[in-house]
């Protein structure tokens, strides 16, 4: 369980699906015990540093309240597919940060190869975790690109609607989380996700999915995948923050979402989405 600032958002953070790696937990424990009375100063400093690095803004009022206020944030995710080089750093970072079991993916990268005749080959060996071998196809490939995927954090999300016990829910700041203490492991949400981003955890037997690294973003840090991306193909933004760079791109440029016909209203946007990808 991640250590979080004591405020209203504690409950949401407590309900996160997964535990962060012990090293980080230990680090936070050490930090907390060491700072004593000077904790406020350190938290402000830490958040400010994280925010500066991440491009996410933790508002002064957040800090003044002594913690995180989810009503002041609304997260959006942006993927520039034209930049992705298929290195797989994001997939590895996600697996490490969130202890994702082998063979299951909270995020993955697909490779598309489209021939002149329109035939499309797609692959994602082990979710693209270890990058991609050079293609050996003898066909005349005219278009090739990498395509990262993750939970679309839909506004009208089928998974939350379908969950019979209310274990899947949408936070006020727009992230879909799973309460793993309430989940009964029926798998209905997994069936209902059109993007294939959920799975039943093979050991915990509960639904598991991308949380946008909720334990990080609520401290003003980037999600692990965004942090790891060497080419800034993955970006996270906050539409409730004035002047947010990512929110500005989404508002002003020609972005698209996956399977818009399903009317789930994803909050994961793509630059360079092409008809072959779904």
């Amino acid at each position: 369980m991640p250590t979080t600032p004591a405020n209203d958002s504690d409950a949401a953070v407590r309900q996160e699906v997964d535990s962060p790696p012990s090293t980080r937990r230990e680090f936070i424990k050490c930090t907390a015990s060491a700072v004593g009375a000077g904790v406020v100063t350190l938290v402000i400093g830490d958040l400010a540093a994280g925010a500066g690095e991440a491009g996410l803004t933790t508002t002064p009022s957040d800090v003044a309240d002594g913690g995180y206020d989810w009503t002041r944030h609304r997260y959006v995710y942006l993927i520039d597919t034209r930049k992705c080089i298929g290195c797989g750093f994001c997939v590895r970072a996600c697996a490490q940060e969130n202890d994702v079991p082998p063979g299951y993916f909270r995020t993955w990268v697909e490779r598309y190869r489209v021939s002149r005749t329109g035939e499309t080959e797609v692959d994602s060996p082990d979710g693209g975790k270890n990058g991609f071998e050079p293609p050996v196809s003898g066909r005349d490939i005219t278009k090739g690109f990498f395509f990262p995927k993750l939970c679309n954090q839909c506004t009208f999300t089928p998974c939350v609607q379908l969950c019979p016990v209310g274990a899947s829910y949408r936070t006020v700041d727009g992230v879909i989380l799973v309460d793993e203490k309430r989940c009964i492991g029926c798998g209905y949400c997994v069936q209902g996700c059109p993007y294939g981003t959920r799975f039943i955890h093979p050991e915990k037997h509960v639904a598991s999915k991308c949380t946008l690294c909720y334990h990080r973003i609520t401290r003003g840090l980037k999600p692990a995948c965004v942090q790891a991306c060497p080419v800034e193909a993955r970006m996270i933004g906050d539409t409730r923050q004035v002047g947010d760079k990512v929110a500005e791109i989404i508002a002003t440029e020609r972005v698209q979402v996956l399977q818009p016909e399903l009317l789930t209203e994803p909050n994961c946007y793509y630059l360079g989405l092409t008809r072959e990808a779904r």
């Binding site: 063979g103 299951y104 993916f105 993955w108 697909e110 080959e121 797609v122 692959d123 994602s124 082990d126 979710g127 995927k149 798998g187 997994v190 069936q191 993007y195 294939g196 981003t197 959920r198 799975f199 039943i200």
Partner: peptide, 12 residues
């Protein structure tokens, strides 16, 4: 063909 990586498992 291509399967989403999480679709390799039959759930129900």
């Amino acid at each position: 063909g291509y399967l989403f990586p999480n679709d390799l498992h039959i759930l129900w």
